[in-house]
Amino acid sequence: MRVMVFMKANEDSERGVMPSEEELAAMMAYNEELVKSGIMLAGDGLQPSSKGARVQFSGGSPTVVDGPFTETKEVVAGYWLWQVKSFDEAVEWVKRCPSGGPDFEIEIRPVFEAEDFGDELTPELREKEQQLREQGQQLREQQG
């Protein structure tokens, strides 16, 4: 199963306070463990919400709201995409995450897989989705 793991923002990350060398080394060691275990598919830190925007839709019309966003606990500061055997395995890995400061929160969410959609994801739609994934991969490889 795939899970998306979100490191939630805190006051420091939203102010753009960079981690110390010690904190970076600890996170690098943790990421190395994830890679060596074969579960890490992707992961990155994100810039503060002051450098971002949200696009809200109401009545079918988009409205752009520039950051920063006041509710820090609702902002994502980084993410991982993992392939794990179970949700419990993901929880155990998150419990080993090095400190993101004195107060931080990490959220884990399962990723929808094709079989989760049931009969609504017809064979034609499954084929189209697979073609799009392959096309995207080919483009990334060509762009180098």
Rank of each mutant, 00 (worst) to 15 (best):
S49H: 07
P62M: 10
E22R: 08
R2E: 11
Q142G: 02
A90Y: 10
E115D: 15
E33G: 02
F57D: 05
Y79F: 13
G101N: 11
S58V: 14
S37V: 03
L125S: 04
E124H: 03
N31H: 01
E134D: 15
G100P: 07
E14G: 08
K51Q: 06
N31R: 06
E113R: 04
R96T: 14
I106R: 00
P98R: 06
E134N: 10
K36R: 15
D66F: 02
K95M: 07
V111K: 09
V94S: 04
Q143H: 12
Y30Q: 11
A9V: 13
E23D: 08
K8I: 06
P62C: 13
Q143G: 02
N31K: 00
V65D: 02
P68H: 13
E129Y: 01
E11K: 13
E14T: 07
E120W: 06
Q135D: 14
G16A: 10
A42M: 14
G60Y: 07
G67W: 12
L46D: 05
E11H: 12
R2Q: 08
V76Y: 00
A90C: 04
D119E: 15
E22A: 15
T63D: 12
V84Q: 11
R126A: 12
E124F: 01
M4D: 06
S61E: 15
L132F: 10
S13E: 01
P98H: 04
M1L: 05
